[in-house]
């Protein structure tokens, strides 16, 4: 089962995206850990979280070899692409990552997360768009599991916004392999 890092700048909702994935893992009977970047690492506006999902025990919550990197901006790619394992996956926000020369041994899925969220009048929903792309990559949860996971997460917070579902579906639909 995969080790993931979700990275972006503050406000792009990467911590929440990671949390939704972790909670979906837990709700589907997996062991999970989630840990945010912290303290001085947080300064300067970048944010990331490490997520591990496993059938067995999880030892360290920290990810040193990334199976799936969700990158919302260019600095995230610059920082974390070298840590992605060979044959690993990057889900990139194409609205911000225009001409990145991805490593050739990786599977890359791109989606215009920021602009899709804006088009759908849900500017804070770019993290949900990218979860649609993550589902589309086929590397983690199936579409319906991830979709239910998104809904269950917001329901548990008592803030069910139908626009989140739209963002998710559009992300799934518009993601480019």
């Amino acid at each position: 089962m995969p080790n993931l890092i979700f990275a972006g700048f503050g406000g792009q909702g990467v911590l929440t995206a990671g949390l939704i994935v972790a909670k979906t893992g837990m709700d589907n009977g997996k062991n999970v850990t989630w840990i945010p970047s912290y303290g001085s690492e947080m300064r300067g506006g970048t944010a990331n979280c490490n997520v591990k999902i496993d059938d067995g025990k999880i030892s360290s919550p920290f990810v040193k070899q990334i199976d799936i990197l969700v990158a919302m901006n260019v600095p995230s790619l610059a920082k974390f692409e070298p840590m992605v394992s060979s044959e690993g996956t990057i889900i990139a926000n194409k609205s911000m990552v225009k001409d990145w020369d991805f490593r050739s041994d990786l599977k890359v899925v791109e989606v215009e997360a920021t602009s899709i969220a804006e088009e759908l009048n849900n500017p804070k929903g770019s993290n949900i768009v990218i979860l649609g792309a993550l589902a589309m990559s086929g590397q983690l949860f199936d579409k319906d599991v991830m979709e239910k996971g998104v809904e269950a997460f917001f329901a548990s917070k008592g803030k069910n916004n139908p626009k989140n579902r739209e963002c998710f579906l559009k992300g799934f639909e518009c993601a480019i392999n």
């Binding site: 972790a22 999970v32 850990t33 989630w34 840990i35 912290y38 360290s60 919550p61």
Partner: peptide, 10 residues
């Protein structure tokens, strides 16, 4: 410690 306290787990 920071990792037990900062991480989320079920």
């Amino acid at each position: 410690d920071a990792s037990i306290s900062q991480m989320m787990e079920p």
